[in-house]
């Protein structure tokens, strides 16, 4: 039986639940599609889904728990200070990946930081640093072992908080 795109259009709308009057031939194709859909009925591991959701909830709450003041503090930094912050964050990040045995941070991250640290003095650069921090955090969330990720994240968060709260460390004065 030959079926054309116009027929498929009607069949598709019918399968989507629209009230379309199908011909017998169109109905036969729709039935065949519905039969074939059963091929895709592979079982989902309920426990796996439960674990994945639990992990996603932890990710979400870690992400939403970030101190929102960070942006404000970052926006108030001068170019040199921002460069120092970026360098420190790379150090924190590197410490974490090395201590967790997950290999070095990506080359792109470091390259971006190097670019930013060389020219930071405007809001766009601040945004770039902020985006890069988000990206590093996302990378870390995905890479870390499940059992350790929450503790490591809290640890990282604590260090970042201290960084923001303590004000410019000595290294800034030197730069």
């Amino acid at each position: 039986m030959q079926v054309y795109d116009a027929d498929y259009e009607r069949i598709g709308r019918w399968l989507d639940g629209e009230a379309v009057e199908l011909t017998a031939a169109e109905r036969a194709v729709a039935d065949e599609i519905r039969r074939d859909e059963l091929l895709l009925d592979a079982p989902i591991d309920g426990r796996g889904q439960h674990e994945a959701m639990a992990r996603a909830r932890r990710r979400l709450s870690a992400e939403l728990g970030r101190p929102r003041r960070r942006k404000l503090v970052l926006a108030a930094l001068t170019g040199v200070e921002a460069a120092a912050v970026a360098a420190l964050l790379v150090m924190v990040w590197t410490f974490h990946v090395v201590s967790n045995g997950n290999g070095p941070p990506s080359i792109m991250s470091l390259e971006t930081f190097v670019q930013v640290t060389g020219q930071t003095d405007g809001p766009e650069e601040m945004d770039l640093i902020e985006d890069e921090l988000d990206r590093l955090r996302a990378e870390m969330l995905v890479e870390l072992p499940e059992d350790d990720s929450d503790a490591a994240l809290e640890d990282l968060q604590e260090q970042l908080d201290e960084l923001w709260l303590d004000g410019p460390p000595d290294i800034w004065a030197e730069s």
Partner: peptide, 21 residues
């Protein structure tokens, strides 16, 4: 792409899958 094209592709895809499976 048009809805008809989508369904045509899906229909052909499902048929091919049926054969493989």
């Amino acid at each position: 792409c048009p809805l008809g094209t989508v369904l045509a592709k899906v229909h052909r895809g499902l048929k091919a899958m049926r054969n493989v499976m």
